[in-house]
Design a protein around this nucleic acid. Structure first.
Lengths: 137, 137
DNA sequence: GTTGAATTGTATGCTTTACTAACAAATGTG
DNA sequence: CACATTTGTTAGTAAAGCATACAATTCAAC
């Protein structure tokens, strides 16, 4: 085996770390994490989505999804209501505060993404997303 | 703002998660994590490296580096010795067990990387690493 | 239609990673 | 020499992930 720099997984880990750190800085005032923002985002896009579907979309198991939904519910951003069509499922909805937080978060994401994409041309961004998608799909 | 799929940071997070999960599966028998393996790898490449330098190479702060070195020391894979040139520094070395574990880990990394790179041509791998490097450098 | 399997949510506990703050020892600088 | 910086260390906090177990609901087989 050659050097650590030749390992693709290593670069993904480092890049993720760098993005995560910048994300945290950007969101320190809002007090939201990556997972919390993406969860809010999905619930905003699909009101009434069930926890299990959320987890599948964000690649989290049920227990992890619970933790994050719990925190967002405690903060008053998300509401649980029993689903009409399937009594096992919890349908999730944003509160007014949740919608406001999501709107703020989206503008923070915009500046975070600008920082990230500043080092790429738009073709490179497209290529990068395409390559990364092959990993997580 | 458009959809979550348009956010580069989101794809990096998902790709990292997928790689992390496969890594964990691959290393469940060895009982090593990504961080532990990369730390062993660096110490193997540069015997006598100080903790602070390790942290810089792997983008970890001192406290986090401590945690991981502690675990590897408890397992008997790594040794701390006070540096001769600078009394503040701890020089790190692999034990014989550490070297054996690293050798095994490298062969696990090889199959993990094969799984990861199977979806890319070698040109794409090169491109991906180049793009990711711009993020974490 | 009832029984048994699968799905979904929930609760609990454990592990890893990451960060902050404070302190001590060694080193470097004025 | 006095003071600041670097490095290691400890302790505490928090997020995220996973496994397990259990209850309620739904689905499937018979």
């Amino acid at each position: 085996m050659g050097a650590l720099d030749g390992i693709v997984g290593f670069h993904i880990r480092l890049a993720h770390g760098a993005v995560y750190r910048h994300f945290t800085e950007t969101f320190v005032d809002l007090g939201l994490t990556q997972k919390q923002v993406s969860l809010l985002w999905v619930v905003g896009d699909e009101p009434g989505v069930a926890q299990i579907e959320l987890g599948q979309r964000l690649r989290m198991d049920r227990a992890t999804t619970m933790t994050i939904v719990n925190r967002l519910e405690q903060r008053g951003y998300v509401q649980r209501r029993r689903s009409n069509s399937d009594g096992r499922k919890q349908a999730l909805y944003l509160t007014a505060e949740g919608q406001a937080a999501l709107a703020e978060a989206k503008s923070c994401i915009a500046s975070h993404e600008a920082w990230l994409q500043a080092r790429f041309t738009s073709d490179e961004v497209k290529k990068l997303v395409e390559l990364l998608t092959r990993i997580h799909e």
